[in-house]
Design a protein around this nucleic acid. Structure first.
Lengths: 127, 127, 127, 127
DNA sequence: GTGGTCTAGACCACG
DNA sequence: GTGGTCTAGACCACC
């Protein structure tokens, strides 16, 4: 799997797994019907606890992105692409909104906010 | 006080207090020598726990933004303005960086990230 | 075979096979001496794992509902009809009991439980 | 708390907690704004693991039945009553539907199903 | 004190 | 082999 976990960015690990699956489906990197790696295998690959993977998978299932069958495995559900695109949008919007709101709460003007954002975005372009 | 607390934006309450003082000083809305409200009074006004205010004040004091004088209260320190401007910059940069990193981890292109950000910034202009 | 498997109704697949054989015998749709399809064939027909069919057959055998003769196949045992009628009764009672208990644990009155049940039973009459 | 756990009825423990809170709200036994017992306290009372309570509370929160604030506790959310009534209905209907479907899959007539259900319901009336 | 996350390890049911 | 549940215990952030 092409996932990577960053333990120090404040986003819970299970949420990182959740998002990466979601985004991969939104991207068409994962297609409906495909199997996800087993809980244990993905846990091994990412060097995290199986329970953590399990939690991510459960969250995917609750949102109908994934279908999980005991004894068989976990596969991408039929309508997943649409759901994942909506999810991706929701997640990103929410992040953006939070940061903007926090900046505004501190009396910053929108122009200043935008400038800061672009500076930060640009400063890593080389990486 | 002209502060406002939002319990649902993910930023810890003590951090919101901390930031709002810091930004007010950076803004010159609060000037060196001015007194902050007492812990209890501010807690009452904002309807939050005094411990939370206390923690914010402690953090302000640790960074030499305020001075607390026993029996008198808490006042903005002399060199606060410079410190606060640096702090403001640091805080905002860090927020921006986090959000950008999360978006990139999800395979988004910078252009898409920027577009999303601007959409979100613009969508609230009327408010 | 006239069986059908529903992967999404909570009843394990092997149990569905087990029950359908049992109920067919109780019904006289299957008679003593008749052969059941081979494990592999039934698995193919129902598009399920042979292990699953095997498990169902084993359970049928343990309760003397079928006899398996090496090299020949699996047939309905002599005394099966009586056993199956008792089994059918046991299974259904148990299902009913479970659901009633769960509803009662949630503080529902028996009258409410009955009404719900009948509504649900009636609502599918047309189908 | 007036909850009770039954480890042997097939319903996961966290789900039992979830349901009992939901049903209590639907009943008006718990009202919007009320605090639930803390995770640790309820775990102690029910003699289960705090993680299990936590999972139930998380599920309540995901469905907007409960609001949980770090460091403060968990309280019944504003619109909870309506949600809980819908949830209660959903849960019960689903149980009923499952059992009816299973019975029908086994070639039972609706009249027989109903008779069985009523027998089972009546047989415990005295308890 | 509160809730949230994560780990480790056990046990179960299912295919 | 698979996923699901539960326990025990640790650590963190917050109030």
């Amino acid at each position: 799997m092409f996932f990577q976990i960053n333990s120090h960015n404040g986003v819970p690990v299970y949420e990182q797994v959740y998002r990466q699956v979601t985004f991969a489906v939104a991207n068409d990197s994962l297609q409906a019907g495909e199997m996800l790696p087993s809980v244990r295998q993905l846990a091994r690959e990412l060097a995290i606890n199986p329970n953590t993977v399990s939690r991510a998978y459960r969250q995917l299932q609750e949102r109908d992105i994934v279908e999980s069958i005991r004894g068989t495995g976990v596969s991408i559900a039929k309508g997943a692409r649409g759901i994942c695109r909506a999810e991706r949008s929701r997640i990103l919007r929410q992040s953006m909104r939070q940061i903007i709101e926090a900046a505004r709460q501190s009396q910053l003007q929108d122009i200043e906010i935008e400038k800061l954002f672009q500076t930060e975005l640009g400063s890593r372009k080389g990486k």
